[in-house]
């Protein structure tokens, strides 16, 4: 019973924390630009405002355009039930493994891209085309990173991977693990639309990927999509933080360990957000046709991760 409560609490926590995480990255970036910046809770205000606004829908759009935000949001929230954010093992651990997580996120991307094409705007089509290209090219890296993790843990189920690394801490420092972490970090940047793949703060339609798809969305639909994007960032951060550095994740499900879990989770988020902010300050956006090079680099890292796991078995 406690497991199910925790499961819901974890999903709720993810939903609540996600906008703050985006705000944190933005605040850190502002500070690195010597700006005062908006506070970290600014995204909550933006979401609240969007939920109180009217929706404007294109006259060309079909039901799919109006359904897509809900599909995107639901599929992303469904993932928060499967990912170990606070504790393992949770009752829904067996409902979906890492592959399910990846394909659920692809489901959201699929519908968002279709929604980008629906109003018939050239920007939407451009965004959809680029988003699907990046998503498709990131896929092999994700699969290989999963392979590397599953190899050392003997399972693709997330709870199992976390538990295994906890019991054998040495594995966290194995070359396979480290290389897979690096590969998945690059994929995180690609999948969540961060620099150098996509600039979340851009105003130029021609350089957009994610933004171009959602140019037509407004009001509550936009809020759902933005929120889902934030949750996706949180999911990837949790995967990076909890699969590779699982310490802090509660295994005993006692109040004390859960407090530790929340604290360590926040610490991991701050570290990862800092890394992203520093990276985004340091590097410029890549030309779209240079992105595949970066992704193939991450692919090679993941391949090395698997091979080294094989050889060091």
């Amino acid at each position: 019973m406690i497991g199910y409560v925790l499961e819901v609490a974890q999903a709720a926590l993810a939903l609540v924390l996600a906008p703050g995480l985006v705000g944190l990255v933005r605040w850190m970036k502002a500070r690195l630009q010597n700006r005062r910046g908006a506070p970290a809770w600014q995204p909550y205000r933006e979401l609240g405002k969007l939920f109180r606004k009217e929706v404007v829908v294109s006259s060309n759009a079909s039901w799919l355009f109006r359904a897509a935000p809900f599909v995107v949001f639901a599929s992303t929230v469904a993932v928060t039930f499967l990912v170990p954010i606070l504790a393992v093992p949770l009752p829904f651990d067996g409902v979906g493994d890492l592959l399910v997580v990846v394909y659920l996120l692809l489901l959201g991307t699929f519908f968002l891209s279709l929604a980008g094409l629906d109003p018939g705007s050239p920007f939407g089509g451009m965004g959809a085309s680029r988003e699907m290209t990046v998503a498709a090219l990131a896929e092999p890296t994700v699969a290989l990173a999963i392979f590397a993790l599953a190899l050392s843990a003997g399972s693709t189920n997330l709870g199992q991977i976390v538990a295994r690394t906890m019991t054998a801490p040495g594995a966290a420092l194995s070359p396979g693990h480290l290389l897979a972490f690096a590969a998945l970090f690059i994929v995180t940047l690609a999948e969540t639309g961060r620099l150098p793949i996509d600039n979340p703060a851009t105003h130029l339609e021609l350089t957009m990927i994610h933004e171009a798809m959602i140019l037509e969305y407004s009001g509550r639909y936009l809020a759902l999509i933005e929120w889902a994007a934030a949750v996706k960032l949180l999911i990837f951060f949790s995967l990076l933080g909890n699969l590779f550095v699982p310490w802090g994740v509660s295994m005993a499900l006692t109040p004390g360990t859960l407090v530790v879990a929340v604290a360590s989770l926040l610490a991991k988020f701050v570290v990862l957000a800092g890394a992203v902010a520093v990276l985004e300050t340091r590097i410029a956006k890549l030309r779209l046709f240079r992105v595949p090079e970066l992704l193939s680099a991450s692919f090679v890292l993941a391949l090395l991760a698997v091979t080294s796991s094989f050889l060091l078995r």
């Binding site: 502002a30 005062r36 910046g37 600014q42 205000r45 404007v56 037509e216 407004s218």
Partner: peptide, 14 residues
């Protein structure tokens, strides 16, 4: 730094 007042520029009137 208008962003500190919560004012930011967006790409689409939507």
């Amino acid at each position: 730094d208008s962003e500190r007042f919560g004012i930011h520029f967006v790409a689409s009137p939507r």
